[in-house]
Design a protein around this nucleic acid. Structure first.
Length: 203
DNA sequence: TACCGGATATCCT
DNA sequence: GGATATCCGGTAA
């Protein structure tokens, strides 16, 4: 359920270092309350996208379009867009107004509403329910309808439940699917909780 | 108007 | 493990 006490405040997102935020989001809990159904999962994989000098970012170097406009707005809002015409991908807008930084959530470990998550995910395999950017939005019932929503209250918000991820348990790597970004694709701006710790956090 | 993408399920060895 | 069909909105021409 939504808790004023645990929700991440906007100050968390109002930070000029998006790579730092991408790491700090690991261990936090992405929550949704949709059609009266509460579901949530521990964020276990993220990617940082910077609005300046980052060819992998949709809003790179002031590229303002209808789609990217939300990234130039206030931190703590959701940037959700359709990928491959099928998948709804969820990002958190960070940094102050005018700076189009965002963190893509790539994977969560389901912790609340497992039955509803299984119901939403129309697949036979119930093992890897939310280990992908398109899978986790389906698991939590998040669609592009929720683009631009403010993530400090329902229907979608992020909580700090006190799970600390030591830096030694964070594995950096290259971002996925951004080959078109040339040399910027080489940056290690993808962050995952180590396999061993993920296992312990799994419900 | 035309191309292509911050991906995934399923089937195959 | 690897290959493959799949969907449609954004973007630039």
């Amino acid at each position: 359920m939504f808790s004023e006490e645990d929700v991440l405040p906007v100050e968390f997102y109002d930070n000029p270092d998006v790579v730092d935020i991408a790491q700090k989001l690991l261990g936090k809990v992405l929550c949704s309350m949709i059609d009266g159904v509460f579901t949530a999962g521990i964020i276990s994989e993220t990617e940082a996208y910077c609005g300046r000098n980052d060819k992998a970012c949709h809003a790179n170097n002031g590229k303002r379009t209808d789609r990217t406009e939300v990234m130039f707005g206030k931190p703590g809002h959701a940037y959700i867009y359709l990928c491959y015409g099928i998948h709804h991908l969820f990002n958190v807008v960070t940094n102050r107004t005018g700076f189009a930084d965002a963190v893509l959530i790539r994977s969560i470990l389901p912790v609340d509403g497992l039955d509803q998550i299984i119901e939403r995910r129309t697949v036979k395999n119930h093992v890897n329910l939310a280990n992908g950017p398109g899978k986790l939005t389906q698991a939590l019932g998040i669609t592009t309808d929720l683009n631009k929503t403010y993530l400090i209250n329902p229907p979608v918000w992020i909580e700090n439940r006190g799970v600390e991820i030591p830096s030694t348990e964070i594995a950096p790597s290259k971002r996925i699917g951004v080959e078109y970004a040339g040399d910027h694709a080489e940056r290690l701006w993808r962050f995952e909780i180590s396999k061993s710790l993920s296992k312990k956090l799994k419900v």
